[in-house]
Amino acid sequence: MGVMRILSGLHRITLVVAQSKVSEGVPAVITNAMFDPVYERVLGLDAINSSALQMRSYMVKYGITEEQCAKVSVKNHRNPKSNPYAHMPMDITVDEVLRSRVLADPIKLLDTSPVSDGACAIVLAEERTARERCSRPVWITGVGHCADAYHLGDRDLADADALASAAKRAYKMAGIQDPVKEIDVAEVYDAFSYMELMWMEGLGLCAWGKGGSMIDSGMTEMDGPLPVNPSGGVLSAHAVQVAGMARIIESVLQLRGEAGMRQVEGARVALAHGIEGACGQGHCVFVLGRQD
């Protein structure tokens, strides 16, 4: 909406603010209410156990292992050790993730993002104002969003079709033809460890079903060719309504070279991604570029 206000030519500068105090409510009750009130809610579905269904479908369809998912957790808790804004930076091992308490099989405690309180804000401006008022603006070059079917049973949970559509829109607007080559750093919505692998596929940053071998290859590590979630992602801070915009903020820091110890050298194009609804029913993709 902020982007639309600027693009409409009616507003020069727009402030976009998000805040979330997850600690004040009961997340299971609230996320249960995203399901159909008549015949899904009574099953006790919430964000965690519905995601467990998705993780299982993904593992079965593509032979992804729990170890591969655990590697995402290890990476995304290690990356933010130099991110002062992250909620849960820590050193953990794949083994520790695998042996952590099972919340809803196959999801374990350390596969899961924390309950966080937080707020964030960004300032958007139209091009001329941005050039005049800011020495290092970051440009929003592409944006796309899309939503899949509502009932979990209506979707193939193992494939993020709506994400593929949202990404296509964003890439088209940004003029990106080969996302793997052109994108230097990505911040994706890893509410659970397996999600990062699935979303990378939906984003076209790795082939369908290849999320597991991608993490094994080290491609998404800080020293790999496409670092993913240098900020620690959602696994390290999950203030729900804030977490999507936090991905944009980290991308901006990366593109401005202000990410400190977690800086991805020479990052020129960044991708930020957010989800909505159960198991990523809806997706939103931003492509951002550096001032040249």
Binding site: S23, E24, G25, V29, N32, A33, P37
Partner: peptide, 13 residues
């Protein structure tokens, strides 16, 4: 028509 009851406790800081 069916009835649904959900407790929605809230802990304000």
């Amino acid at each position: 028509s069916i009835t649904a009851m959900a407790d929605m406790p809230y802990y304000y800081h």
